[in-house]
Write a protein that binds this DNA or RNA. Structure first.
Length: 308
DNA sequence: CCCCAGGCAACTG
DNA sequence: CAGTTGCATGGG
């Protein structure tokens, strides 16, 4: 539990690295500002700072009655140790975990997560993050910030996006994703799809429903399942995961996406999604440029026991 | 000019 | 089925 002082909260943490976590490609609206991170959560401007190994302080621009939404977002009550213990003893995974101790999975709001990753397809994080900010500035609601602070906005609700002409969305550099975002926002706004109800669904059911949305394929659906709904079995396969899995587990032959999914579910333990986050971050920021996996040759795949 | 980016949908064989 | 291609946009 945290210590609250109106505009400030101190959260006790263990095995938590705030910098690594917020910079690991899960969220795109949190920005470093002189030793802290600033962003918007549930309509509140917040500043997060890790004081030491065991303390994260939260500052708000206005008094907060209940801080539960912050701890939920940060998942500070999750005990990371048993999750890491359940990781398989494999050289690549060991290196990734050692490279980024305290890397966590956050728990995002489904709509912001879905819309953000819908805009991510075939674009660099730097680029679509700018698009997301422009979209919030254009269609979000202003939030209270500290005196002298820069204007900041909420992530626009699906009902708001649904009412925007496609050409306006295109002017935000959304490109060919504009009609996808628009149609998806409309599907949610008119209750064709109920994102809240997915919390009660199985991961397979939820994935099927998400993938019926235009512009949402397996990868984006898995990101939402993992980052917003907490399905630790979801294993998003992007170009970075594809690269490092190819390098360490398939050597010559480029793996199909389904083969990577099979590998993850069969060999990466009970929390493939956590493994994925470590591998993704390691592939992007931690791995040697030309890492030679032959020094720790990966064992061959065990005989497949998949059922039909 | 090229290739690539936290992909997806449509198309081809 | 699996594999290929077009798509907007910007960086290297």
């Amino acid at each position: 539990m945290g210590i609250t002082q109106g505009n400030e909260l101190t959260i006790r943490v263990r095995d938590y690295n705030l910098d690594t976590t917020l910079a690991s490609g899960q969220v795109f609206r949190w920005h470093r500002a002189n030793g802290a991170w600033e962003g918007v959560l549930d309509g509140h401007w917040l500043r997060l700072r890790q004081r030491d190994e065991n303390q994260i302080t939260v500052h708000s621009a206005v008094p907060i009655r209940s801080w539960g939404f912050v701890e939920h977002f940060l998942q500070t009550k999750v005990d990371l140790a048993p999750i890491l213990t359940a990781f398989p003893a494999e050289p690549l995974i060991g290196r990734a975990v050692a490279a980024f101790p305290g890397l966590r999975l956050l728990r995002q709001l489904p709509w912001e997560c879905l819309a953000s990753f819908l805009l991510s397809s075939n674009k660099q994080i730097r680029q679509f993050s700018l698009t997301i900010e422009a979209m919030c500035r254009a269609y979000g609601v202003p939030v209270v910030t500290p005196p002298g602070g820069q204007a900041t906005y909420t992530f626009p609700e699906p009902e708001r996006i649904a009412a925007v002409p496609e050409r306006e969305l295109r002017s935000l550099k959304t490109g060919y994703r504009a009609p996808y975002l628009l149609a998806t926002a409309r599907a949610i706004a008119d209750r064709t799809v109920d994102l809240v109800a997915l919390h009660q669904a199985s991961v397979e059911e939820a994935r099927t429903i998400l993938m019926e949305l235009p512009g949402v394929g397996r990868k984006i659906a898995d990101c939402v399942l993992l980052f917003a709904y907490g399905f630790a079995s979801a294993f998003p396969v992007d170009v970075w995961i594809e690269k490092i899995i190819w390098q360490w587990y398939f050597a010559k032959r480029p793996p199909r996406s389904s083969e990577i999914q099979d590998l993850a579910s069969q060999r990466f333990g009970p929390h493939p999604g956590y493994v994925q986050q470590y591998l993704y971050h390691y592939a992007r920021l931690g791995a040697p440029l030309d890492p030679p996996p032959e020094s720790t040759s990966p064992s061959p795949m065990p005989p497949s026991v998949t059922t039909v």
